[in-house]
Protein backbone atom coordinates (compact mmCIF):
# COMPACT_ATOMS: atom_id res chain seq x y z
CA UNK A 1 0.00 0.00 0.00
CA UNK A 2 2.86 2.35 0.83
CA UNK A 3 4.25 1.63 -2.63
CA UNK A 4 1.01 2.73 -4.28
CA UNK A 5 1.00 6.04 -2.43
CA UNK A 6 4.70 6.53 -3.10
CA UNK A 7 4.14 6.00 -6.82
CA UNK A 8 1.21 8.39 -6.67
CA UNK A 9 3.48 11.09 -5.24
CA UNK A 10 6.16 10.37 -7.87
CA UNK A 11 3.53 10.43 -10.60
CA UNK A 12 1.92 13.66 -9.38
CA UNK A 13 5.27 15.46 -9.38
CA UNK A 14 6.06 14.24 -12.90
CA UNK A 15 2.52 14.93 -14.13
CA UNK A 16 2.51 18.47 -12.74
CA UNK A 17 5.58 19.25 -14.86
CA UNK A 18 3.96 17.73 -17.97
CA UNK A 19 0.92 19.87 -17.21
CA UNK A 20 2.97 23.08 -17.07
CA UNK A 21 4.51 22.36 -20.46
CA UNK A 22 1.18 21.21 -21.91
CA UNK A 23 -0.34 24.61 -21.03
CA UNK A 24 2.05 26.28 -23.49
CA UNK A 25 1.04 23.92 -26.32
CA UNK A 26 -2.61 24.42 -25.59
CA UNK A 27 -2.47 28.23 -25.34
CA UNK A 28 -0.64 28.63 -28.64
CA UNK A 29 -3.05 26.20 -30.27
CA UNK A 30 -5.93 28.22 -28.82
CA UNK A 31 -4.91 31.47 -30.48
CA UNK A 32 -3.04 30.29 -33.59
CA UNK A 33 -4.43 26.78 -34.30
CA UNK A 34 -1.01 25.25 -34.73
CA UNK A 35 1.35 23.13 -32.63
CA UNK A 36 4.53 24.91 -31.58
CA UNK A 37 6.94 21.99 -31.71
CA UNK A 38 9.80 24.15 -30.46
CA UNK A 39 8.01 24.36 -27.11
CA UNK A 40 9.87 21.35 -25.67
CA UNK A 41 13.15 23.07 -26.48
CA UNK A 42 12.09 26.22 -24.66
CA UNK A 43 11.56 23.91 -21.68
CA UNK A 44 15.17 22.76 -22.09
CA UNK A 45 16.42 26.36 -22.41
CA UNK A 46 14.58 27.16 -19.19
CA UNK A 47 16.51 24.44 -17.35
CA UNK A 48 19.80 25.74 -18.77
CA UNK A 49 18.87 29.33 -17.87
CA UNK A 50 18.42 28.08 -14.30
CA UNK A 51 21.80 26.34 -14.48
CA UNK A 52 23.53 29.60 -15.40
CA UNK A 53 21.49 31.88 -13.11
CA UNK A 54 21.97 29.76 -9.99
CA UNK A 55 25.66 30.73 -9.39
CA UNK A 56 24.84 34.41 -10.13
CA UNK A 57 21.99 34.43 -7.63
CA UNK A 58 24.14 32.65 -5.07
CA UNK A 59 26.54 35.59 -5.03
CA UNK A 60 24.12 37.69 -3.03
CA UNK A 61 21.72 35.10 -1.67
CA UNK A 62 22.66 31.97 0.28
CA UNK A 63 22.87 28.87 -1.90
CA UNK A 64 20.02 26.38 -1.53
CA UNK A 65 17.48 28.78 -0.09
CA UNK A 66 13.81 28.85 -1.04
CA UNK A 67 14.02 32.55 -1.84
CA UNK A 68 17.09 32.08 -4.05
CA UNK A 69 15.38 29.18 -5.82
CA UNK A 70 12.31 31.30 -6.47
CA UNK A 71 14.46 34.09 -7.88
CA UNK A 72 16.23 31.67 -10.25
CA UNK A 73 12.82 30.40 -11.32
CA UNK A 74 11.51 33.90 -12.05
CA UNK A 75 14.67 34.91 -13.94
CA UNK A 76 14.53 31.78 -16.10
CA UNK A 77 10.84 32.39 -16.80
CA UNK A 78 11.57 35.96 -17.91
CA UNK A 79 14.43 34.86 -20.19
CA UNK A 80 12.34 32.12 -21.76
CA UNK A 81 9.35 34.42 -22.20
CA UNK A 82 11.64 36.68 -24.24
CA UNK A 83 13.00 33.69 -26.19
CA UNK A 84 9.45 32.50 -26.92
CA UNK A 85 8.43 35.93 -28.17
CA UNK A 86 11.57 36.14 -30.27
CA UNK A 87 10.87 32.73 -31.86
CA UNK A 88 7.34 33.87 -32.70
CA UNK A 89 8.59 37.17 -34.11
CA UNK A 90 11.36 35.69 -36.27
CA UNK A 91 9.93 32.35 -37.35
CA UNK A 92 6.14 32.38 -37.16
CA UNK A 93 5.01 35.98 -37.68
CA UNK A 94 6.28 36.22 -41.29
CA UNK A 95 4.17 33.12 -42.03
CA UNK A 96 1.00 34.36 -40.35
CA UNK A 97 -1.07 34.32 -43.54
CA UNK A 98 0.42 31.16 -45.00
CA UNK A 99 -1.17 27.69 -44.69
CA UNK A 100 -0.97 26.25 -41.18
CA UNK A 101 1.13 23.37 -42.51
CA UNK A 102 3.94 25.77 -43.45
CA UNK A 103 4.04 27.11 -39.91
CA UNK A 104 3.98 23.58 -38.49
CA UNK A 105 6.99 22.50 -40.56
CA UNK A 106 8.77 25.72 -39.59
CA UNK A 107 8.14 24.86 -35.93
CA UNK A 108 9.83 21.50 -36.42
CA UNK A 109 12.73 23.32 -38.08
CA UNK A 110 13.03 25.77 -35.18
CA UNK A 111 12.99 22.84 -32.75
CA UNK A 112 15.83 21.01 -34.56
CA UNK A 113 17.75 24.27 -34.91
CA UNK A 114 17.65 24.90 -31.15
CA UNK A 115 18.48 21.28 -30.26
CA UNK A 116 21.51 21.00 -32.52
CA UNK A 117 22.83 24.50 -31.91
CA UNK A 118 22.74 23.83 -28.18
CA UNK A 119 24.57 20.53 -28.61
CA UNK A 120 27.51 22.34 -30.17
CA UNK A 121 30.52 22.48 -27.87
CA UNK A 122 30.58 26.29 -28.05
CA UNK A 123 27.01 26.54 -26.72
CA UNK A 124 26.10 23.94 -24.06
CA UNK A 125 27.76 20.79 -25.47
CA UNK A 126 26.00 17.44 -25.68
CA UNK A 127 27.18 16.01 -22.35
CA UNK A 128 24.69 15.88 -19.47
CA UNK A 129 25.39 18.22 -16.57
CA UNK A 130 24.56 18.17 -12.92
CA UNK A 131 21.84 20.72 -12.12
CA UNK A 132 22.72 22.74 -8.99
CA UNK A 133 20.61 22.17 -5.88
CA UNK A 134 18.43 25.27 -5.73
CA UNK A 135 16.56 24.50 -2.54
CA UNK A 136 17.52 22.70 0.68
CA UNK A 137 17.30 18.97 -0.08
CA UNK A 138 15.17 17.60 2.73
CA UNK A 139 13.03 14.51 2.79
CA UNK A 140 10.03 13.94 4.99
CA UNK A 141 9.12 10.46 6.16
CA UNK A 142 5.42 9.87 6.77
CA UNK A 143 4.85 6.26 7.69
CA UNK A 144 6.80 4.43 5.01
CA UNK A 145 6.35 7.29 2.54
CA UNK A 146 9.28 9.42 1.51
CA UNK A 147 8.49 12.88 0.19
CA UNK A 148 11.34 15.01 -1.13
CA UNK A 149 11.22 18.77 -0.73
CA UNK A 150 11.64 19.09 -4.50
CA UNK A 151 8.45 17.09 -5.08
CA UNK A 152 6.48 19.34 -2.74
CA UNK A 153 7.94 22.41 -4.44
CA UNK A 154 6.89 21.06 -7.85
CA UNK A 155 3.30 20.64 -6.73
CA UNK A 156 3.10 23.96 -4.88
CA UNK A 157 4.72 25.94 -7.72
CA UNK A 158 2.47 24.33 -10.31
CA UNK A 159 -0.59 25.16 -8.26
CA UNK A 160 0.48 28.81 -7.82
CA UNK A 161 1.24 29.16 -11.54
CA UNK A 162 -2.10 27.59 -12.51
CA UNK A 163 -4.01 30.01 -10.28
CA UNK A 164 -2.00 32.93 -11.67
CA UNK A 165 -2.65 31.76 -15.22
CA UNK A 166 -6.35 31.40 -14.57
CA UNK A 167 -6.41 34.92 -13.16
CA UNK A 168 -4.58 36.34 -16.20
CA UNK A 169 -6.78 34.59 -18.73
CA UNK A 170 -10.13 35.18 -17.00
CA UNK A 171 -9.81 38.49 -15.17
CA UNK A 172 -7.36 40.73 -17.01
CA UNK A 173 -7.86 42.77 -20.17
CA UNK A 174 -5.07 40.97 -22.04
CA UNK A 175 -6.58 37.63 -21.03
CA UNK A 176 -9.96 38.67 -22.35
CA UNK A 177 -8.27 39.69 -25.60
CA UNK A 178 -6.53 36.27 -25.75
CA UNK A 179 -9.85 34.52 -25.42
CA UNK A 180 -11.37 36.82 -28.00
CA UNK A 181 -8.60 35.99 -30.51
CA UNK A 182 -9.06 32.29 -29.84
CA UNK A 183 -12.83 32.52 -30.47
CA UNK A 184 -12.66 34.54 -33.64
CA UNK A 185 -9.54 36.31 -34.84
CA UNK A 186 -11.26 38.56 -37.37
CA UNK A 187 -13.96 39.68 -34.99
CA UNK A 188 -11.29 40.41 -32.38
CA UNK A 189 -9.47 42.68 -34.84
CA UNK A 190 -12.71 44.53 -35.54
CA UNK A 191 -13.12 45.09 -31.81
CA UNK A 192 -9.73 46.79 -31.72
CA UNK A 193 -7.59 43.93 -30.39
CA UNK A 194 -3.95 44.17 -31.45
CA UNK A 195 -3.46 40.61 -32.74
CA UNK A 196 0.34 40.76 -32.93
CA UNK A 197 0.62 41.92 -29.34
CA UNK A 198 -1.75 39.26 -28.08
CA UNK A 199 -0.04 36.43 -29.96
CA UNK A 200 3.36 37.62 -28.76
CA UNK A 201 2.03 37.73 -25.20
CA UNK A 202 0.63 34.21 -25.53
CA UNK A 203 4.01 32.87 -26.65
CA UNK A 204 5.72 34.70 -23.78
CA UNK A 205 3.30 33.30 -21.24
CA UNK A 206 3.53 29.75 -22.55
CA UNK A 207 7.33 29.87 -22.72
CA UNK A 208 7.55 31.20 -19.16
CA UNK A 209 5.50 28.21 -17.98
CA UNK A 210 7.76 25.88 -19.98
CA UNK A 211 10.79 27.46 -18.29
CA UNK A 212 9.19 26.87 -14.90
CA UNK A 213 8.61 23.26 -15.95
CA UNK A 214 12.26 23.00 -17.00
CA UNK A 215 13.57 24.24 -13.66
CA UNK A 216 11.23 22.00 -11.68
CA UNK A 217 12.16 18.99 -13.83
CA UNK A 218 15.88 19.65 -13.45
CA UNK A 219 15.45 20.13 -9.69
CA UNK A 220 13.66 16.83 -9.37
CA UNK A 221 15.86 14.69 -11.65
CA UNK A 222 19.16 16.61 -11.20
CA UNK A 223 20.67 16.38 -14.68
CA UNK A 224 20.16 18.49 -17.80
CA UNK A 225 21.22 18.13 -21.44
CA UNK A 226 20.22 19.77 -24.75
CA UNK A 227 17.91 16.93 -25.83
CA UNK A 228 15.97 16.70 -22.56
CA UNK A 229 13.04 18.56 -24.15
CA UNK A 230 12.42 16.09 -26.97
CA UNK A 231 10.73 13.25 -25.09
CA UNK A 232 9.28 15.47 -22.37
CA UNK A 233 7.90 17.90 -24.93
CA UNK A 234 6.27 15.05 -26.84
CA UNK A 235 4.63 13.74 -23.68
CA UNK A 236 3.38 17.20 -22.75
CA UNK A 237 1.93 17.59 -26.24
CA UNK A 238 0.04 14.32 -25.82
CA UNK A 239 -1.11 15.50 -22.40
CA UNK A 240 -2.52 18.64 -24.02
CA UNK A 241 -4.33 16.56 -26.65
CA UNK A 242 -5.77 14.18 -24.07
CA UNK A 243 -7.03 17.04 -21.92
CA UNK A 244 -8.56 18.61 -25.01
CA UNK A 245 -6.23 20.87 -26.93
CA UNK A 246 -7.09 24.52 -26.49
CA UNK A 247 -8.52 23.86 -23.03
CA UNK A 248 -6.37 25.10 -20.12
CA UNK A 249 -7.65 22.96 -17.20
CA UNK A 250 -7.61 20.04 -19.67
CA UNK A 251 -3.88 20.44 -20.24
CA UNK A 252 -3.17 20.29 -16.52
CA UNK A 253 -5.46 17.27 -16.10
CA UNK A 254 -3.89 15.50 -19.11
CA UNK A 255 -0.43 16.08 -17.66
CA UNK A 256 -1.38 14.60 -14.29
CA UNK A 257 -2.99 11.52 -15.87
CA UNK A 258 0.00 10.92 -18.11
CA UNK A 259 2.50 11.33 -15.27
CA UNK A 260 0.62 9.00 -12.95
CA UNK A 261 -0.01 6.28 -15.56
CA UNK A 262 3.61 6.39 -16.67
CA UNK A 263 4.91 6.13 -13.13
CA UNK A 264 2.68 3.19 -12.22
CA UNK A 265 3.66 1.36 -15.43
CA UNK A 266 7.32 2.04 -14.62
CA UNK A 267 7.02 0.30 -11.27
CA UNK A 268 5.80 -3.02 -12.64
CA UNK A 269 8.58 -5.59 -13.26
CA UNK A 270 8.57 -6.76 -16.87
CA UNK A 271 6.62 -3.73 -17.99
CA UNK A 272 8.95 -1.01 -16.72
CA UNK A 273 10.69 -0.79 -20.09
CA UNK A 274 7.36 -0.15 -21.81
CA UNK A 275 6.26 2.68 -19.54
CA UNK A 276 6.07 5.19 -22.38
CA UNK A 277 4.25 2.72 -24.60
CA UNK A 278 1.69 1.88 -21.91
CA UNK A 279 1.10 5.55 -21.15
CA UNK A 280 0.53 6.29 -24.84
CA UNK A 281 -1.71 3.24 -25.30
CA UNK A 282 -4.02 4.41 -22.51
CA UNK A 283 -4.12 7.84 -24.10
CA UNK A 284 -5.17 6.33 -27.43
CA UNK A 285 -7.97 4.56 -25.56
CA UNK A 286 -9.14 7.83 -24.03
CA UNK A 287 -9.11 9.51 -27.42
CA UNK A 288 -11.10 6.64 -28.97
CA UNK A 289 -13.97 7.37 -26.63
CA UNK A 290 -13.51 11.13 -26.35
CA UNK A 291 -11.92 12.26 -29.63
CA UNK A 292 -11.74 15.92 -28.61
CA UNK A 293 -10.05 15.13 -25.33
CA UNK A 294 -11.36 14.83 -21.80
CA UNK A 295 -12.44 18.45 -21.38
CA UNK A 296 -12.45 19.57 -25.02
CA UNK A 297 -15.72 20.47 -26.67
CA UNK A 298 -16.53 18.50 -29.81
CA UNK A 299 -16.38 20.76 -32.81
CA UNK A 300 -19.20 20.61 -35.26
CA UNK A 301 -18.00 20.78 -38.82
CA UNK A 302 -20.24 23.24 -40.69
CA UNK A 303 -20.74 22.71 -44.39
Amino acid sequence: MTEVFQQLINGLALGAIYGLIALGYTMVYGVLRFINFAHGDVFMLGAFAGYYFAPLVNRFLPAQSYFGGALVLVLAMVVCALIGMLIEFLAYRPLRNRPKLTVLITAIGVSLFIEYTCQHAAVFGAAPRKFPDLIPATTWHIGGLVIASSQVIVLVTTLILLIALRFIVQKTKVGTAMRAVSFNEQAAVLMGVNINRIISFTFGLGSALAAAGGILYAMNYSSIEPLMGVQTGLKAFVAAVVGGIGNLPGAALGGLILGIVETFAGGIPGLSNYRDGIAFAILILILLFRPSGLLGKPQVEKV
Partner: peptide, 12 residues
Protein backbone atom coordinates in the same frame (compact mmCIF):
# COMPACT_ATOMS: atom_id res chain seq x y z
CA UNK B 1 15.86 11.08 -16.36
CA UNK B 2 13.10 9.78 -14.12
CA UNK B 3 13.94 6.51 -12.35
CA UNK B 4 11.74 7.04 -9.32
CA UNK B 5 8.96 4.74 -10.50
CA UNK B 6 11.29 1.75 -10.83
CA UNK B 7 13.28 2.63 -7.70
CA UNK B 8 10.07 2.76 -5.68
CA UNK B 9 9.27 -0.78 -6.82
CA UNK B 10 12.84 -1.86 -6.00
CA UNK B 11 12.55 -0.34 -2.53
CA UNK B 12 9.27 -2.19 -1.96
Amino acid sequence: KDFKAQLTAIKA
